[in-house]
Design a protein around this nucleic acid. Structure first.
Lengths: 214, 214
DNA sequence: ATTGAATTGTTAATATCTTCACATTCACAA
DNA sequence: TTGTGAATGTGAAGATATTAACAATTCAAT
Protein backbone atom coordinates (compact mmCIF):
# COMPACT_ATOMS: atom_id res chain seq x y z
CA UNK A 1 0.00 0.00 0.00
CA UNK A 2 1.45 3.30 -1.04
CA UNK A 3 0.12 6.11 1.05
CA UNK A 4 3.28 8.10 0.72
CA UNK A 5 3.49 11.14 -1.42
CA UNK A 6 -0.05 12.31 -1.00
CA UNK A 7 -0.01 16.09 -1.21
CA UNK A 8 -0.62 17.94 2.00
CA UNK A 9 -3.44 19.87 0.46
CA UNK A 10 -5.17 16.61 -0.31
CA UNK A 11 -4.56 15.18 3.14
CA UNK A 12 -6.21 18.18 4.71
CA UNK A 13 -9.35 17.58 2.74
CA UNK A 14 -9.70 13.93 3.69
CA UNK A 15 -11.70 14.46 6.87
CA UNK A 16 -14.09 16.65 4.94
CA UNK A 17 -14.58 13.94 2.38
CA UNK A 18 -14.99 11.35 5.08
CA UNK A 19 -17.63 13.36 6.87
CA UNK A 20 -19.69 13.86 3.75
CA UNK A 21 -19.40 10.21 2.88
CA UNK A 22 -20.81 9.14 6.24
CA UNK A 23 -23.63 11.56 5.61
CA UNK A 24 -24.37 10.01 2.22
CA UNK A 25 -24.10 6.55 3.70
CA UNK A 26 -26.52 7.35 6.50
CA UNK A 27 -28.92 8.78 3.96
CA UNK A 28 -28.84 5.44 2.17
CA UNK A 29 -27.21 6.82 -0.94
CA UNK A 30 -25.41 4.18 -2.99
CA UNK A 31 -23.43 6.13 -5.53
CA UNK A 32 -22.13 9.63 -5.94
CA UNK A 33 -20.47 11.58 -8.73
CA UNK A 34 -17.58 13.98 -8.34
CA UNK A 35 -19.84 16.83 -9.49
CA UNK A 36 -22.40 16.09 -6.81
CA UNK A 37 -19.67 15.72 -4.23
CA UNK A 38 -18.11 18.94 -5.38
CA UNK A 39 -21.20 20.98 -4.66
CA UNK A 40 -21.58 19.57 -1.18
CA UNK A 41 -18.02 20.01 0.00
CA UNK A 42 -17.27 23.12 -2.04
CA UNK A 43 -14.19 21.73 -3.70
CA UNK A 44 -13.70 21.71 -7.48
CA UNK A 45 -14.81 18.43 -8.98
CA UNK A 46 -11.51 17.93 -10.78
CA UNK A 47 -9.71 18.33 -7.47
CA UNK A 48 -11.93 15.71 -5.94
CA UNK A 49 -11.24 13.24 -8.73
CA UNK A 50 -7.54 13.95 -8.45
CA UNK A 51 -7.57 13.62 -4.69
CA UNK A 52 -9.35 10.30 -4.90
CA UNK A 53 -7.06 9.07 -7.63
CA UNK A 54 -4.01 9.36 -5.40
CA UNK A 55 -5.39 6.33 -3.64
CA UNK A 56 -5.94 4.40 -6.84
CA UNK A 57 -8.90 4.03 -9.13
CA UNK A 58 -11.77 4.19 -6.69
CA UNK A 59 -14.55 5.04 -9.09
CA UNK A 60 -16.04 3.74 -12.29
CA UNK A 61 -16.07 5.81 -15.45
CA UNK A 62 -19.50 6.77 -16.58
CA UNK A 63 -20.91 5.74 -13.24
CA UNK A 64 -19.34 7.53 -10.31
CA UNK A 65 -18.15 6.34 -6.94
CA UNK A 66 -19.68 3.66 -4.78
CA UNK A 67 -20.43 5.34 -1.47
CA UNK A 68 -19.90 2.31 0.73
CA UNK A 69 -16.63 1.38 -0.95
CA UNK A 70 -15.31 4.88 -0.71
CA UNK A 71 -16.42 5.25 2.88
CA UNK A 72 -14.77 2.09 4.09
CA UNK A 73 -11.65 3.00 2.18
CA UNK A 74 -11.37 6.43 3.76
CA UNK A 75 -12.28 4.97 7.11
CA UNK A 76 -9.16 2.89 6.90
CA UNK A 77 -7.00 5.70 5.55
CA UNK A 78 -8.04 7.97 8.39
CA UNK A 79 -7.74 5.26 11.02
CA UNK A 80 -11.36 5.67 11.86
CA UNK A 81 -11.77 1.95 12.35
CA UNK A 82 -9.91 2.11 15.61
CA UNK A 83 -10.35 4.36 18.60
CA UNK A 84 -7.54 6.85 19.08
CA UNK A 85 -6.78 7.87 22.64
CA UNK A 86 -5.38 11.31 23.24
CA UNK A 87 -4.20 13.20 26.29
CA UNK A 88 -5.39 16.64 27.24
CA UNK A 89 -2.69 18.72 28.85
CA UNK A 90 -4.03 21.78 30.60
CA UNK A 91 -7.59 21.57 31.90
CA UNK A 92 -8.51 25.25 31.94
CA UNK A 93 -11.46 26.87 30.25
CA UNK A 94 -10.66 25.66 26.78
CA UNK A 95 -9.48 22.31 28.05
CA UNK A 96 -12.76 21.71 29.88
CA UNK A 97 -14.72 22.67 26.80
CA UNK A 98 -12.72 20.15 24.80
CA UNK A 99 -13.43 17.48 27.40
CA UNK A 100 -17.10 18.01 26.69
CA UNK A 101 -16.57 17.93 22.98
CA UNK A 102 -17.68 14.72 21.35
CA UNK A 103 -14.69 13.87 19.19
CA UNK A 104 -15.71 10.27 19.26
CA UNK A 105 -18.85 10.46 17.16
CA UNK A 106 -17.22 12.41 14.37
CA UNK A 107 -13.61 11.33 14.52
CA UNK A 108 -13.39 8.20 16.68
CA UNK A 109 -11.07 10.03 19.00
CA UNK A 110 -11.33 9.99 22.77
CA UNK A 111 -9.62 12.03 25.42
CA UNK A 112 -8.54 9.36 27.87
CA UNK A 113 -6.59 11.42 30.36
CA UNK A 114 -6.31 15.01 31.46
CA UNK A 115 -3.39 16.69 33.21
CA UNK A 116 -3.22 19.88 35.20
CA UNK A 117 -1.49 21.55 38.12
CA UNK A 118 -4.65 22.84 39.75
CA UNK A 119 -5.22 20.69 42.89
CA UNK A 120 -8.92 21.55 42.78
CA UNK A 121 -9.42 19.37 39.75
CA UNK A 122 -6.52 16.94 39.80
CA UNK A 123 -7.61 13.60 41.17
CA UNK A 124 -11.17 14.18 40.04
CA UNK A 125 -13.08 13.05 36.99
CA UNK A 126 -14.20 15.80 34.65
CA UNK A 127 -16.78 14.93 32.00
CA UNK A 128 -15.88 11.29 32.42
CA UNK A 129 -12.15 11.82 32.06
CA UNK A 130 -9.72 11.37 34.96
CA UNK A 131 -7.57 14.42 35.56
CA UNK A 132 -4.10 13.69 36.92
CA UNK A 133 -1.56 15.92 38.50
CA UNK A 134 1.17 16.97 36.09
CA UNK A 135 3.72 14.96 38.00
CA UNK A 136 2.04 11.78 36.84
CA UNK A 137 1.90 12.97 33.26
CA UNK A 138 4.92 11.18 31.91
CA UNK A 139 4.20 7.87 33.58
CA UNK A 140 0.55 7.93 32.55
CA UNK A 141 1.36 8.77 28.93
CA UNK A 142 3.88 5.98 28.84
CA UNK A 143 1.65 3.44 30.54
CA UNK A 144 -1.39 4.23 28.44
CA UNK A 145 0.84 4.47 25.38
CA UNK A 146 -0.80 7.68 24.31
CA UNK A 147 0.74 9.11 21.17
CA UNK A 148 -1.24 12.30 20.73
CA UNK A 149 -1.75 15.23 23.05
CA UNK A 150 -3.89 18.32 22.98
CA UNK A 151 -1.94 21.20 24.44
CA UNK A 152 -4.07 23.81 26.18
CA UNK A 153 -1.64 25.23 28.70
CA UNK A 154 -0.65 28.88 29.21
CA UNK A 155 1.79 30.11 26.58
CA UNK A 156 4.75 30.64 28.92
CA UNK A 157 4.99 26.95 29.82
CA UNK A 158 4.00 25.54 26.42
CA UNK A 159 7.49 24.67 25.17
CA UNK A 160 8.55 23.16 28.47
CA UNK A 161 5.48 20.94 28.67
CA UNK A 162 5.83 20.02 25.01
CA UNK A 163 9.38 18.83 25.66
CA UNK A 164 8.17 16.73 28.55
CA UNK A 165 5.36 14.99 26.74
CA UNK A 166 7.57 14.34 23.72
CA UNK A 167 10.09 12.76 26.07
CA UNK A 168 7.27 10.59 27.38
CA UNK A 169 6.49 9.31 23.92
CA UNK A 170 4.00 11.75 22.42
CA UNK A 171 4.34 11.83 18.65
CA UNK A 172 1.73 14.40 17.69
CA UNK A 173 0.64 17.61 19.35
CA UNK A 174 -2.47 19.61 18.68
CA UNK A 175 -1.21 22.95 19.87
CA UNK A 176 -3.77 25.50 20.99
CA UNK A 177 -1.18 27.93 22.30
CA UNK A 178 0.18 30.79 20.20
CA UNK A 179 3.71 29.47 20.67
CA UNK A 180 5.58 28.08 17.69
CA UNK A 181 6.75 24.89 19.29
CA UNK A 182 10.05 23.41 18.32
CA UNK A 183 10.32 19.65 18.30
CA UNK A 184 12.59 16.95 16.93
CA UNK A 185 12.00 15.64 13.43
CA UNK A 186 9.21 13.13 13.19
CA UNK A 187 7.02 14.85 15.76
CA UNK A 188 3.88 16.22 14.18
CA UNK A 189 2.69 19.56 15.40
CA UNK A 190 -0.58 21.09 14.35
CA UNK A 191 -1.10 24.57 15.67
CA UNK A 192 -4.52 26.09 16.04
CA UNK A 193 -4.47 29.55 17.49
CA UNK A 194 -7.93 31.01 17.71
CA UNK A 195 -6.81 34.59 18.19
CA UNK A 196 -4.73 34.29 15.03
CA UNK A 197 -7.63 32.85 13.10
CA UNK A 198 -9.82 35.74 14.17
CA UNK A 199 -7.16 38.23 13.18
CA UNK A 200 -6.97 36.68 9.73
CA UNK A 201 -10.72 36.96 9.40
CA UNK A 202 -10.60 40.61 10.41
CA UNK A 203 -7.84 41.23 7.92
CA UNK A 204 -9.69 39.62 5.02
CA UNK A 205 -12.80 41.54 5.91
CA UNK A 206 -11.11 44.89 5.88
CA UNK A 207 -9.12 44.23 2.73
CA UNK A 208 -12.36 43.18 1.04
CA UNK A 209 -13.91 46.46 2.12
CA UNK A 210 -11.04 48.43 0.68
CA UNK A 211 -11.29 46.52 -2.56
CA UNK A 212 -14.92 47.50 -2.89
CA UNK A 213 -14.34 51.15 -2.06
CA UNK A 214 -11.83 51.34 -4.86
CA UNK B 1 -2.44 52.45 -0.38
CA UNK B 2 -2.43 49.21 -2.25
CA UNK B 3 -3.29 46.32 0.00
CA UNK B 4 -4.88 44.40 -2.83
CA UNK B 5 -3.28 41.38 -4.34
CA UNK B 6 -1.48 40.19 -1.29
CA UNK B 7 -1.28 36.41 -1.52
CA UNK B 8 -3.46 34.48 0.86
CA UNK B 9 -0.48 32.54 2.13
CA UNK B 10 1.13 35.80 3.13
CA UNK B 11 -2.00 37.14 4.78
CA UNK B 12 -2.23 34.07 6.94
CA UNK B 13 1.25 34.69 8.28
CA UNK B 14 0.65 38.31 9.23
CA UNK B 15 -0.68 37.66 12.73
CA UNK B 16 2.34 35.48 13.40
CA UNK B 17 4.65 38.28 12.32
CA UNK B 18 2.70 40.77 14.35
CA UNK B 19 2.92 38.70 17.46
CA UNK B 20 6.65 38.27 17.22
CA UNK B 21 7.12 41.95 16.53
CA UNK B 22 5.28 42.90 19.71
CA UNK B 23 7.52 40.47 21.52
CA UNK B 24 10.64 42.11 20.09
CA UNK B 25 9.25 45.53 20.86
CA UNK B 26 8.50 44.62 24.46
CA UNK B 27 12.01 43.26 24.79
CA UNK B 28 13.32 46.64 23.71
CA UNK B 29 14.84 45.37 20.50
CA UNK B 30 15.32 48.07 17.89
CA UNK B 31 16.18 46.21 14.72
CA UNK B 32 15.76 42.74 13.36
CA UNK B 33 17.02 40.88 10.31
CA UNK B 34 15.00 38.50 8.21
CA UNK B 35 17.33 35.68 9.23
CA UNK B 36 16.73 36.32 12.90
CA UNK B 37 13.02 36.64 12.30
CA UNK B 38 13.05 33.46 10.31
CA UNK B 39 14.36 31.37 13.15
CA UNK B 40 11.81 32.66 15.59
CA UNK B 41 8.71 32.23 13.47
CA UNK B 42 9.92 29.18 11.55
CA UNK B 43 9.35 30.65 8.13
CA UNK B 44 12.06 30.77 5.47
CA UNK B 45 13.88 34.09 5.51
CA UNK B 46 13.32 34.67 1.81
CA UNK B 47 9.61 34.20 2.36
CA UNK B 48 9.69 36.75 5.11
CA UNK B 49 11.44 39.29 2.94
CA UNK B 50 9.01 38.65 0.14
CA UNK B 51 6.01 38.86 2.45
CA UNK B 52 7.22 42.16 3.82
CA UNK B 53 8.00 43.47 0.36
CA UNK B 54 4.37 43.15 -0.72
CA UNK B 55 3.76 46.11 1.51
CA UNK B 56 6.62 48.11 0.04
CA UNK B 57 10.22 48.52 1.04
CA UNK B 58 10.02 48.28 4.80
CA UNK B 59 13.61 47.46 5.53
CA UNK B 60 17.00 48.85 4.84
CA UNK B 61 19.58 46.91 2.86
CA UNK B 62 22.59 46.02 4.86
CA UNK B 63 20.80 46.90 8.05
CA UNK B 64 17.54 45.02 8.55
CA UNK B 65 14.10 46.10 9.66
CA UNK B 66 13.28 48.70 12.25
CA UNK B 67 11.13 46.92 14.82
CA UNK B 68 8.99 49.89 15.81
CA UNK B 69 8.34 50.88 12.22
CA UNK B 70 7.41 47.41 11.23
CA UNK B 71 5.24 46.93 14.27
CA UNK B 72 3.21 50.07 13.78
CA UNK B 73 2.88 49.24 10.11
CA UNK B 74 1.48 45.77 10.78
CA UNK B 75 -0.66 47.14 13.56
CA UNK B 76 -2.41 49.24 11.00
CA UNK B 77 -2.59 46.50 8.40
CA UNK B 78 -4.19 44.14 10.89
CA UNK B 79 -6.51 46.78 12.31
CA UNK B 80 -4.99 46.30 15.69
CA UNK B 81 -5.17 50.02 16.39
CA UNK B 82 -8.89 49.77 16.90
CA UNK B 83 -10.99 47.45 19.00
CA UNK B 84 -13.03 44.96 16.98
CA UNK B 85 -16.31 43.87 18.50
CA UNK B 86 -17.58 40.42 17.65
CA UNK B 87 -20.71 38.48 18.51
CA UNK B 88 -20.71 34.99 19.94
CA UNK B 89 -23.58 32.90 18.69
CA UNK B 90 -24.13 29.78 20.75
CA UNK B 91 -23.03 29.90 24.37
CA UNK B 92 -22.45 26.21 25.01
CA UNK B 93 -19.30 24.60 26.32
CA UNK B 94 -17.03 25.91 23.63
CA UNK B 95 -18.81 29.24 23.55
CA UNK B 96 -18.28 29.74 27.27
CA UNK B 97 -14.62 28.87 26.94
CA UNK B 98 -14.27 31.46 24.21
CA UNK B 99 -15.95 34.04 26.43
CA UNK B 100 -13.16 33.48 28.92
CA UNK B 101 -10.53 33.67 26.25
CA UNK B 102 -8.59 36.91 26.24
CA UNK B 103 -8.70 37.87 22.59
CA UNK B 104 -8.19 41.45 23.54
CA UNK B 105 -4.63 41.30 24.74
CA UNK B 106 -3.34 39.43 21.72
CA UNK B 107 -5.67 40.56 18.96
CA UNK B 108 -7.56 43.63 20.18
CA UNK B 109 -10.80 41.75 19.67
CA UNK B 110 -13.64 41.70 22.15
CA UNK B 111 -16.76 39.61 22.33
CA UNK B 112 -19.40 42.22 23.02
CA UNK B 113 -22.54 40.11 22.91
CA UNK B 114 -23.54 36.48 23.26
CA UNK B 115 -26.67 34.80 21.95
CA UNK B 116 -28.33 31.56 22.93
CA UNK B 117 -31.66 29.83 23.26
CA UNK B 118 -31.05 28.45 26.74
CA UNK B 119 -33.22 30.50 29.13
CA UNK B 120 -30.91 29.59 31.98
CA UNK B 121 -28.21 31.86 30.62
CA UNK B 122 -30.03 34.34 28.41
CA UNK B 123 -30.51 37.61 30.21
CA UNK B 124 -27.45 37.01 32.33
CA UNK B 125 -23.90 38.19 32.06
CA UNK B 126 -21.29 35.51 31.45
CA UNK B 127 -17.64 36.43 31.94
CA UNK B 128 -18.58 40.06 31.57
CA UNK B 129 -20.53 39.59 28.36
CA UNK B 130 -24.31 39.99 28.18
CA UNK B 131 -26.05 36.95 26.75
CA UNK B 132 -29.24 37.69 24.82
CA UNK B 133 -32.00 35.45 23.70
CA UNK B 134 -31.72 34.51 20.04
CA UNK B 135 -34.82 36.50 19.22
CA UNK B 136 -32.92 39.68 19.95
CA UNK B 137 -29.96 38.60 17.86
CA UNK B 138 -30.75 40.44 14.68
CA UNK B 139 -31.68 43.72 16.35
CA UNK B 140 -28.65 43.63 18.63
CA UNK B 141 -26.24 42.90 15.79
CA UNK B 142 -27.74 45.72 13.80
CA UNK B 143 -27.77 48.18 16.67
CA UNK B 144 -24.24 47.41 17.80
CA UNK B 145 -23.16 47.29 14.16
CA UNK B 146 -21.27 44.10 14.74
CA UNK B 147 -19.66 42.76 11.59
CA UNK B 148 -18.08 39.57 12.81
CA UNK B 149 -19.59 36.56 14.54
CA UNK B 150 -18.20 33.45 16.12
CA UNK B 151 -20.50 30.56 15.37
CA UNK B 152 -20.56 27.88 18.05
CA UNK B 153 -24.02 26.42 17.59
CA UNK B 154 -24.98 22.78 17.01
CA UNK B 155 -24.33 21.64 13.44
CA UNK B 156 -27.99 21.09 12.49
CA UNK B 157 -28.90 24.76 12.94
CA UNK B 158 -25.61 26.25 11.72
CA UNK B 159 -26.72 27.21 8.21
CA UNK B 160 -30.02 28.64 9.39
CA UNK B 161 -28.36 30.81 12.02
CA UNK B 162 -25.67 31.85 9.56
CA UNK B 163 -28.34 33.06 7.16
CA UNK B 164 -29.96 35.06 9.93
CA UNK B 165 -26.84 36.83 11.11
CA UNK B 166 -25.78 37.58 7.55
CA UNK B 167 -29.19 39.13 7.00
CA UNK B 168 -28.56 41.23 10.10
CA UNK B 169 -25.33 42.59 8.66
CA UNK B 170 -22.61 40.16 9.67
CA UNK B 171 -19.80 40.17 7.12
CA UNK B 172 -17.43 37.60 8.56
CA UNK B 173 -18.04 34.32 10.35
CA UNK B 174 -15.61 32.30 12.37
CA UNK B 175 -17.27 28.94 11.98
CA UNK B 176 -16.59 26.33 14.63
CA UNK B 177 -19.16 23.90 13.28
CA UNK B 178 -18.27 21.12 10.85
CA UNK B 179 -20.80 22.47 8.36
CA UNK B 180 -19.57 23.98 5.12
CA UNK B 181 -21.60 27.13 5.24
CA UNK B 182 -22.85 28.69 2.06
CA UNK B 183 -23.04 32.45 1.95
CA UNK B 184 -23.36 35.23 -0.60
CA UNK B 185 -20.22 36.62 -2.22
CA UNK B 186 -18.36 39.10 -0.08
CA UNK B 187 -19.08 37.28 3.17
CA UNK B 188 -15.89 35.90 4.68
CA UNK B 189 -16.11 32.51 6.27
CA UNK B 190 -13.28 30.95 8.20
CA UNK B 191 -13.98 27.43 9.32
CA UNK B 192 -12.18 25.86 12.23
CA UNK B 193 -13.32 22.37 12.96
CA UNK B 194 -11.38 20.86 15.82
CA UNK B 195 -12.38 17.27 15.13
CA UNK B 196 -11.13 17.69 11.57
CA UNK B 197 -7.85 19.15 12.76
CA UNK B 198 -7.34 16.21 15.06
CA UNK B 199 -8.13 13.78 12.27
CA UNK B 200 -5.53 15.44 10.09
CA UNK B 201 -3.00 15.11 12.88
CA UNK B 202 -3.82 11.43 13.29
CA UNK B 203 -3.50 10.92 9.57
CA UNK B 204 -0.10 12.58 9.34
CA UNK B 205 1.10 10.60 12.30
CA UNK B 206 0.16 7.27 10.84
CA UNK B 207 1.45 8.05 7.39
CA UNK B 208 4.73 9.09 8.97
CA UNK B 209 4.85 5.76 10.76
CA UNK B 210 4.28 3.87 7.53
CA UNK B 211 6.97 5.90 5.82
CA UNK B 212 9.46 4.89 8.47
CA UNK B 213 8.52 1.21 8.42
CA UNK B 214 9.21 1.16 4.70
C1' DA C 1 -25.34 -5.88 -30.08
C1' DT C 2 -25.31 -0.85 -30.69
C1' DT C 3 -25.75 3.63 -29.37
C1' DG C 4 -25.79 7.52 -26.31
C1' DA C 5 -25.35 9.79 -22.06
C1' DA C 6 -22.59 10.09 -18.12
C1' DT C 7 -18.50 10.33 -15.57
C1' DT C 8 -13.91 8.88 -14.39
C1' DG C 9 -8.80 9.28 -14.52
C1' DT C 10 -5.23 11.85 -16.30
C1' DT C 11 -2.42 14.96 -19.35
C1' DA C 12 -1.56 19.45 -20.03
C1' DA C 13 -2.16 24.23 -18.75
C1' DT C 14 -2.39 27.55 -15.28
C1' DA C 15 -2.00 29.55 -10.85
C1' DT C 16 0.01 30.05 -6.54
C1' DC C 17 3.68 29.57 -3.31
C1' DT C 18 8.46 28.86 -1.88
C1' DT C 19 13.25 29.11 -2.29
C1' DC C 20 17.68 30.26 -4.40
C1' DA C 21 21.00 33.42 -5.48
C1' DC C 22 22.80 37.79 -6.09
C1' DA C 23 23.04 42.79 -7.53
C1' DT C 24 22.00 46.62 -4.88
C1' DT C 25 22.19 49.39 -1.05
C1' DC C 26 23.24 50.86 3.56
C1' DA C 27 25.88 51.64 8.02
C1' DC C 28 30.01 52.08 9.82
C1' DA C 29 34.91 52.05 10.43
C1' DA C 30 39.38 53.39 8.97
C1' DT D 1 35.97 59.36 1.47
C1' DT D 2 36.54 55.03 0.52
C1' DG D 3 36.06 50.22 1.51
C1' DT D 4 33.92 46.34 3.77
C1' DG D 5 30.55 43.50 5.65
C1' DA D 6 25.73 42.84 6.16
C1' DA D 7 21.23 42.33 4.70
C1' DT D 8 17.42 43.76 1.67
C1' DG D 9 14.49 43.28 -2.41
C1' DT D 10 13.69 40.65 -6.37
C1' DG D 11 14.27 37.99 -10.89
C1' DA D 12 14.37 33.40 -11.95
C1' DA D 13 13.84 28.60 -10.83
C1' DG D 14 11.50 25.11 -8.56
C1' DA D 15 7.73 23.08 -6.06
C1' DT D 16 3.10 22.47 -5.11
C1' DA D 17 -1.77 23.00 -6.05
C1' DT D 18 -5.75 23.87 -8.95
C1' DT D 19 -8.39 23.74 -13.02
C1' DA D 20 -9.52 22.71 -17.89
C1' DA D 21 -10.31 19.45 -21.21
C1' DC D 22 -10.91 15.15 -23.11
C1' DA D 23 -10.05 10.15 -24.30
C1' DA D 24 -11.44 6.01 -22.14
C1' DT D 25 -14.86 3.51 -20.13
C1' DT D 26 -19.17 2.18 -18.16
C1' DC D 27 -24.24 1.75 -17.68
C1' DA D 28 -28.69 1.65 -19.53
C1' DA D 29 -31.86 1.88 -23.08
C1' DT D 30 -33.20 0.20 -27.36
Amino acid sequence: MDQIGIPKATAKRLPLYYRYLTLLHDAGKKKVSSTEFSEAVQVDSASIRRDFSYFGALGKRGYGYDVDNLLSFFKKILNQDELTNVALVGVGNLGKALLNFNFRSSANIRISAGFDINPKITGTIVSGVPVYYVKEMQTQIREQQIQIAILTVPAPVAQKIADEIIAAGIKGIMNFTPIRLSAPAGIQIQTLDMATELQILVYFLHSEEKRKNK
